[in-house]
């Protein structure tokens, strides 16, 4: 008997139904700060995924030994360690990118997405489920960063991943690479995702209603036939 969602449920939930950015509004700081272009957004997504997966694995492994009043301390200690490793790795192998990301890599420590997954899933479920959860959430976070960065880089610079995708004549929308552009794009995409979710829910409700009507029709017909036959008898 499983004591929570299964690994596949955790994995799928993280991508869209419980997307950390579009559904839970977590990790807003990097979402707004590093999405002016695709490369910093992808690097941030990779660093966050590394920290999230590593922290979930460790916390799940030691979940039997966690004391309730010390668990947040253990989560923070674990997350801070992996963030420092990611920060040093970037400074060693992706030096220019580490300068572009600046303080936002150390700030992964305070990304609520990671500590919330440790609390909600890793401290309660098996390593397999914790890894599936971390990978799903990482993909969801990456999807959000990439979608925002795509809009901002294409409209703001006419490029995508540094490659020109709009004609040279395109007047780059400067606001898109500035902080107000991040808020505008995030707001519009959030509204779009919300509208899409409501539209799907309405369609599902309509489908359920039509099925129940047709079932009612069938059962009503059967009841009338039964009544008629009893009168005949």
């Amino acid at each position: 008997m499983p004591d929570g969602p299964t690994a596949s449920e955790r994995f799928l939930n993280g991508i869209l139904p419980e997307n950390p950015v579009y559904r839970q509004l977590l990790g807003m700081c990097p979402v707004l700060a590093v999405t002016a272009a695709m490369l910093p957004a992808l690097t941030m997504a990779a660093a966050t995924a590394f920290v999230l997966i590593s922290a979930n694995v460790i916390i799940s492994l030691i979940r039997g030994q966690l004391r309730p009043h010390l668990r947040i301390l253990v989560f923070t200690l674990t997350i801070a360690t992996f963030v420092t490793i990611a920060d040093r790795f970037l400074a060693a192998y992706l030096y220019e990118m580490s300068k572009v990301l600046g303080p936002y890599v150390p700030l992964i420590i305070v990304n609520c997405l990671i500590i919330s997954r440790c609390e909600i899933c890793a401290s309660k479920q098996t390593v397999r489920v914790a890894v599936a959860d971390a990978v799903g959430m990482s993909l969801g976070f990456t999807l959000a960063l990439v979608s925002i960065a795509t809009v901002r880089e294409v409209l703001g610079s006419g490029t995508w991943l540094g490659l020109r995708v709009l004609p040279e004549a395109w007047p780059n929308w400067g606001i898109m690479v500035l902080p107000p552009g991040a808020f505008l794009v995030l707001g519009l995409l959030l509204a779009g995702v919300e509208w899409w979710g409501q539209w799907r829910a309405e369609r599902a409700a309509l489908a359920v209603a039509s099925v129940s009507r047709s079932l009612q029709g069938q059962s009503g017909g059967a009841a009338r036939e039964e009544e008629a036959s009893s009168w005949k008898a």
Binding site: I62, R67, L73, V74, T78
Partner: peptide, 8 residues
């Protein structure tokens, strides 16, 4: 209480 924190 704290052996795990110290070990980690």
């Amino acid at each position: 209480q704290a052996w795990l924190v110290l070990l980690l």
